[in-house]
Nucleic acid binder design. Structure first.
Lengths: 351, 351
DNA sequence: GTCTGCAACCCAATCGATTGGGTAAACTTT
DNA sequence: AAAGTTTACCCAATCGATTGGGTTGCAGAC
């Protein structure tokens, strides 16, 4: 809080140098290098004087100037579908913290999952000369990613994965499996899935994890028990209504791949006079803070969102060092709550 | 998507100049100035050649270099309590859009409403040489703000106001008044307020707007009908429980100054076996996307969150131009839903 | 007594864009 | 035709930090 302490301009290396009667480059070396380069650059006594004065005057290096020379901005660009999606917001909080810890700053922008916007935002970030990108809105048909690779732009994926690229995600297949096992054990035999957007690995993986496990347990589930939808509450409501409107026997359980979609589905059930947790079990995904606080608390797969963000920062650091890190998949856990705590009601289960 | 088009380095002014056989400064003037300075700098023909080549090579100016010279970074720093608060996330979306429109980029950081964090984050932003700050987490006892003013750091407040500083907020007093009028009209006479954090103008204004209007309508409300709390769901639940645990007659309506607190309060009511909207009306604030989608849809004061963000950008632009803009207060509107749609039940109202 | 080596610095170019101050040539004006 | 005015540019310094390549002075080696 003092780099402009006395009304005027910020303190520069030159100011320090002048004050101490030494050359700016010496000051730079002292301040810049941990102690390795610092040796040989100045005597211990001088180094101490430099550090002392820097502290006193509240010197803080101008990152603009530094990066002009070093060609590194210590800036990370983060692209998410929308920051008002709680899941992404929390991942971003993880990024923000982790990147600050390693001396980077993060920039976020929304793409609204619109391919054109994704391009535009990436361009904006590159124009700002970010050192690397964390992409939270990757689409499975990733032409864009190939292009970035060709252009040698360092990037990692977060939240959603695309095979062949480094990514930090939840192990969504495992998450889907957890739900399948849980619902099966609770005696459900008729289920439906609100699957999310087809272009997102989160949706695809959670769904396929669920479906595969369900079948391996001996359950049957057909393609039209899987409804693709938007991730938000309204999308979940529509999907829920679609499921209920079908001619088929009503499912005793619904798995929505996202808490917000699950909330929407709960709304649809309620509109039909059905009680969530009694007539129909509902399970969500991500265990957002709301899940536990809903009037009927929502069973949800807990995914370590902040850690996913932190991991993404580690991965991009590795990429910037020139490594090619393996995808990281963090483990989900199931939080069973009232919305799916009761066994499937006998008559229906017997159907 | 092409400034690094052919594998190598980014295109610079010098590259363009060399290619065209003219001086970099001429290129700069052509590209930089809208057409005013451009005239006199180069012939129309040359100007066209420059623009043409710039387009072809995908030239994008290095903002680092530019800002080193111009002392402007075109960067805005945004501080919010937490981005995982949907309200702030949406305001940030407004900022993001509006700032992009005027050629700025925005940086966000979380302060978690912790004064020490606020300082630290502000320092980080200033170290990045942001042109101005948008502060979304101002505390009413604003020593920090005075300090920033003294240091001549350009800033505006958003979401929360502090008298004497430029700010973009919802007219929270008016919002509180809307709720008071509504509940009064619905026949409620015993009410309680979940007031939020004392240090936030949002909490204080909404509460005082409500209380003052309530009294002017002839209602009575005492200090202990107002419970200060955190803004999140857990805080709302605790406050709700506190209200219900008091010896006093149970209120027929609760106004929570925040949707999440309202949801928490709804949970507390439900745990007691009370039905929201029948036994007790609940009203929230902000009309977040969830409000309408809850199992029992929540009456809420709609505040134009994205517009508040956009307005904050306009204000900071004004400050950067040297103006001293007046605080902007955007108008809220009331969205009545099921949680408060029924008239207060007669027996209780008659008490 | 010269030479080598090291410690402790200094110098100047560099990154890319911007900008105040030119200047040469062409074109008017009188 | 001399003087003035435009037009269309160019030059070089500047912003602040970094860095490869010196230089100086002194100590100890031979």
């Amino acid at each position: 809080m003092k780099e402009k302490a006395d009304g005027g301009r910020a303190v520069t290396l030159k100011d320090l140098a002048r004050e101490l009667g030494i050359h700016p480059s010496t000051v730079s070396r002292v301040l810049h290098s941990g102690s390795d380069v610092a040796k040989g650059a100045a005597s211990a006594a001088t180094a101490e004087r430099v550090r002392e004065l820097a502290r006193k005057l509240g010197y803080s290096p101008d990152p603009q100037a530094a990066s002009l020379r070093t060609r590194r901005t210590k800036l990370l660009g983060v692209i998410v579908p929308r920051l008002s999606d709680l899941v992404l917001a929390i991942m971003y909080e993880g990024i923000d913290e982790a990147s600050a810890e390693v001396g980077y700053s993060a920039f976020v922008m929304n793409s609204r999952d619109d391919p054109e916007e994704q391009r535009r935002k990436i361009d904006l970030m590159l124009a700002r000369r970010v050192d690397g990108l964390i992409i939270g809105d990757a689409h499975l048909d990733g032409g864009l990613l190939q292009e970035l690779t060709d252009r040698k732009v360092p990037f990692v994926l977060m939240n959603r994965r695309v095979p062949g690229y480094p990514s930090a995600t939840c192990d969504d297949v495992a998450g889907g499996e957890l739900v399948a096992s849980h619902l099966w054990e609770m005696g459900h035999r008729q289920v439906a899935v609100i699957a999310g957007e087809r272009y997102a690995s989160t949706a695809v993986d959670r769904t396929s994890g669920f479906v595969d496990r369900w079948r391996s347990l001996g359950g049957t589930i057909s393609d039209d028990d899987v409804v693709w939808s938007r991730f938000d509450t309204a999308g979940g409501r529509e999907a829920g209504e679609e499921i209920l409107a079908r001619g088929k026997p009503r499912p005793t359980a619904i798995f929505a791949v996202n808490d917000f979609a699950a909330i929407g589905a709960m709304g649809a059930l309620r509109s039909r006079g059905l009680t969530v947790g009694e007539d129909v079990a509902v399970v969500g995904y991500n265990d957002t803070s709301l899940a536990a606080e809903l009037p009927i608390p929502l069973t949800s797969v807990h995914s370590p969102m902040a850690d996913i963000g932190r991991t993404a920062v580690q991965l991009i650091q590795a990429v910037l060092r020139g490594d090619k890190p393996e995808p990281a998949q963090l483990k989900p856990t199931l939080c069973v709550r009232e919305s799916s705590a009761a066994r499937a009601s006998a008559e229906v289960a017997a159907t």
